[in-house]
Computed example of a mutant assay.
Amino acid sequence: MTPQIDLSADGFSAGTSPGVSLGEQLRRIRKAHGATQVALGLGVGVSTATISMWENGRRHPTGKHMAAVREFFGVLANISPIGAGSLGYDEFMIESRESIAKFVGTSADKIRIMIEI
């Protein structure tokens, strides 16, 4: 099961449990998505060593890199978690589909999103 981590515009928030570091949250979401440090580094435009330093708390990603991390995991920076002030369901799905299509290099009409509850 994917950890419930808030990839909001200001970075990761402690959505997994109190006191979980940004680096640990990044590691958890990366592993939950089956991504390696190499793949995340390539997707974000940094070295594997940088990803390792982020995950171990020796360095922190810049705002630009956090935006790239959000895009890598298919979460738009301008979409807040569902709730007050967020996009409606339809807008959320349209923007998510467009973001995923851009990331994988195809058109949005070829992207299907399935939600399992």
Score class of each variant (00 low, 15 high):
Ser8Arg: 13
Ala9Glu: 13
Asp6Ile: 07
Ala32Pro: 10
Leu22Val: 05
His33Arg: 06
Leu22Gln: 13
Ser21Ala: 11
Val20Leu: 15
Ser13His: 13
Ala14His: 05
Gly23Phe: 10
Arg30Cys: 06
Leu22Ser: 04
Thr16Gln: 09
Ile5Arg: 01
Val20Gly: 02
Gly34Asp: 08
Gly15Asn: 07
His33Glu: 01
Ile29Gly: 02
Gly23Arg: 09
Ile29Thr: 10
Lys31Cys: 00
Ala32Gln: 11
Ser17Ala: 15
Gln4Phe: 13
Leu22Thr: 12
Ala9Ser: 10
Gly19Tyr: 08
Gly34Arg: 12
Pro18Ala: 15
Gly23Lys: 11
Ile29Pro: 01
Ala9Met: 04
Ala9Arg: 12
Gly15Met: 11
Gln4Asp: 15
Gln4Lys: 12
Gly23Asn: 12
Arg27Trp: 04
Arg28Tyr: 03
Ser17Pro: 00
Gln25Asn: 15
Gly34Ala: 04
Glu24Thr: 10
Lys31Asn: 03
Arg27Ser: 04
Leu26Gly: 01
Gly19Ala: 14
Phe12Ile: 06
Ala9Val: 08
Lys31Gly: 02
Arg30Leu: 04
Glu24Pro: 00
Thr16Arg: 12
Val20Ala: 15
Arg30Gly: 05
Phe12Glu: 04
Thr16His: 10
Pro18Asp: 14
Arg28Ala: 07
Leu26Gln: 07
Pro18Ser: 15
Gln25Thr: 02
Val20Arg: 14
Ser13Gly: 11
Ser21Arg: 07
Gly34Ser: 10
Phe12Thr: 11
Arg28Ser: 04
Asp10Leu: 12
Ala32Ser: 15
Leu26Tyr: 09
Ser13Ala: 12
Ala32Asn: 14
Gly15Pro: 07
Phe12Trp: 11
Ile29Ala: 02
Ala9Asp: 07
Gly19Phe: 11
Lys31Leu: 13
Ser17Lys: 14
Ser13Pro: 00
Ser13Lys: 15
His33Met: 02
Ala14Lys: 08
Arg28Glu: 11
Ser21Glu: 12
Arg28Met: 14
Leu7Ser: 03
Arg28His: 02
Ala14Ile: 08
Pro18Ile: 08
Gly34Phe: 07
Gly19Asp: 15
Ala14Leu: 01
Gln25Asp: 07
Gly15Leu: 03
Pro18Lys: 13
Leu26Asp: 04
Gly34Val: 07
Ile5Glu: 01
Arg28Ile: 02
Ile29Glu: 01
Lys31Tyr: 01
Ser13Thr: 13
Lys31Gln: 13
Ile29Lys: 03
Ser17Leu: 10
Ser17Met: 08
Gly23Asp: 12
Ser21Thr: 15
Ile29Met: 11
Leu26Thr: 06
Arg30Phe: 05
Arg30Gln: 05
Ser8Glu: 09
His33Ile: 00
Arg27Ala: 13
Lys31Thr: 03
Gly23Val: 13
Ala9Gln: 05
Gly15Gln: 03
Ile5Met: 01
Gln25Gly: 15
Ala32Met: 08
Phe12Asn: 01
Asp10Val: 14
Gly34Thr: 09
Pro18Val: 11
Pro18Trp: 04
Ile29Cys: 05
Lys31Ala: 03
Asp10Pro: 02
Pro18Thr: 09
Gly15Phe: 10
Asp6Met: 03
Arg30Glu: 05
